[in-house]
Design a protein around this nucleic acid. Structure first.
Lengths: 196, 196
DNA sequence: CGCGACGTTGATTTGCCTCAACGATTGTGG
DNA sequence: CCACAATCGTTGAGGCAAATCAACGTCGCG
């Protein structure tokens, strides 16, 4: 399986597993092809899997009271995505996770993940590090939301994740940055004018 | 050590460790008395420890460009606190962590934590679960910030963490909820008037 | 007592939202 | 492969939630 090499390469960055262990790890995952606009997590249903993106792009979002969508995170190649609140507590999800493009993912079932961790402490370590980094990442996001203006957040995102910005629709980016599509459009336009 | 029983009780909730293991775990921690207004983490310095609050209250915050403080999190009895970005990557902190009251904490050094995890996979599991729950918590926070108004966030906080609200100064709560002290004051006042 | 930290109140301002209308681009069925 | 609809992005006018600014009350503490 060619796509499993991506996940192996991800694992190799930890410099922790032998080739056989790495092999065992990826064997617990199954490859899924996801159509554009297809949902892999939906509110009301338990998120039964953790997903690793081999190819494509995803978007996680919640729908507020007024029906407004709020993007929580994106995931492109070599990133992970799921509704963590749902996955780790195995309770109904509150988020949607949808494919923005034709995608290929490798996913692991919750129970299989538990087995994996039990079978070898090194696997436990992998998941521990992933969670810690995720936590640190979320905290940086939170700080950015609290301390910066809409335009500053936009600038930061463009400089840090230009590849994502190119691939996701404007409304998704806007709702991730905590603003409306209209306002994002105005920010962009202002910048274009300034350059000339 | 009486204060170590608190941490043991925390550990017991995982139903994972034997008494001896639990003993070994807490023995890696040292008890520290912290004065009100004392800093346990400061920007520029690496956060060398992870802190468990036995008694007292702490506040983590960043200082924005304009000099405004933004509270990232609080911690009271039986909670953990540190600058995770600094701690897990062992890089200089960007946050302050300060005692809001006379406090007692149990803290573990980064290197000792690594030893602990290496010595017994169960300890690795403990930290993994803590990170996962922290991640899920942060995500819920982020969603709340994106989807709710200032007043709704205030109401939610008051209903979920009344004990914290009672103990922290108003300006700290305001900056945690992403608003100014003045605005929080106006919200409270409006509520008092409505009741009559 | 007197100072500094904390909280309140009102007037004014502003960043961003809402609403509405209109191009541009994409998708789709005939 | 075109036609028409949906989806997506843009632009402008007006409005509101929350920030800013400023002045004053209050409490705790050295």
């Amino acid at each position: 399986m060619k796509s499993k090499n991506n996940l192996k390469h991800f694992l190799s960055k930890f410099s922790l597993l032998t080739d056989e262990e790495s092999e065992q790890f990826v064997d617990s995952f199954s490859e899924i092809h996801v159509k554009k606009r297809q949902y892999i997590v939906q509110p009301g249903f338990v998120a039964t899997s953790r997903h690793y993106v081999v190819q494509g792009a995803f978007r996680a979002f919640v729908v507020g009271n007024s029906g407004t969508e709020h993007t929580i995170t994106f995931a492109i190649e070599d990133w992970w995505i799921t509704d963590y609140n749902s996955y780790i507590y195995q309770q109904p999800a509150t988020m949607f996770v949808v494919a923005l493009e034709e995608s290929i993912i490798l996913q692991i079932d919750f129970h299989k993940e538990q087995q994996l961790k039990k079978s070898n402490p090194k696997f436990e370590t992998i998941f521990r590090i992933m969670a810690e980094r995720g936590l640190a990442f979320q905290q940086r996001l939170l700080i950015s939301n609290l301390t910066q203006t809409a335009e500053e957040r936009y600038d930061l995102f463009m400089s840090k994740y230009p590849k994502i910005a190119q691939r996701v629709p404007q409304y998704a980016l806007a709702s991730f940055l905590g603003m409306t599509t209209e306002f994002l459009s105005k920010i962009r336009n202002k910048k274009v004018r300034k350059k000339s």
